[in-house]
């Protein structure tokens, strides 16, 4: 009794099941807590530097994955950087046509390794290009919760 010949899966005798975990509680960790606190309270991005390798990481890491040293050197970075690459979403996750295309970019920042994925806004899709300068548009301080969505989007700098 093969799936293809029957056509609709529900035409086979079947049992419904689901994975009943209601959800997950994730923690941001040692470095992540610092990163989001800085974003919330100071509107800046937090990076960290391995003094042994002289390599910096954004978002901040508590350890160096390259040499395994503990990282204790943290520093703030202005939320302004360059578009490393981008994509334009025309179809949503359920296959629906989006009324407005959404631009998503990988943004790198001056003087640090790593970067962030975020949305671009206040710009026409025709104007976006790799290498362009963008800066973060943040929620007002009292509305920030220490989450990545405290940044609404990045706009042309």
């Amino acid at each position: 009794m093969s799936w293809d010949k029957v056509g609709l899966p529900t035409k086979l005798r079947h049992w419904y099941g689901d994975m009943e975990v209601e959800g997950y509680l994730y923690t941001a960790g040692i470095a992540g807590e610092k990163f989001f606190k800085t974003l919330k309270e100071r509107g800046k991005l937090l990076a960290s530097r391995c003094m042994k390798c002289d390599v910096s990481y954004l978002p901040a890491r508590a350890y160096c994955p390259s040499c395994f040293s503990e990282i204790t050197e943290y520093f703030e970075v202005e939320p302004e950087g360059n578009v490393e690459t981008y994509t334009i979403l025309r179809v949503g996750v359920d296959g629906e046509k989006l009324e407005e295309p959404v631009i998503v970019a990988f943004i790198t920042f001056d003087g640090v390794n790593g970067g962030l994925i975020h949305r671009l806004g206040e710009m026409d899709e025709k104007d976006v290009e790799i290498g362009m300068r963008v800066k973060a548009v943040l929620k007002p301080t009292d509305e920030r919760r220490g989450e990545i969505t405290d940044i609404l989007y990045f706009k042309p700098a």
């Binding site: 923690t27 040692i30 470095a31 992540g32 994955p65 395994f68």
Partner: peptide, 13 residues
């Protein structure tokens, strides 16, 4: 509080 990666690093180190 540690992320799974941070826990792994602590033990491995």
């Amino acid at each position: 509080l540690e992320t799974p990666k941070e826990l792994a690093w602590e033990a491995a180190k």
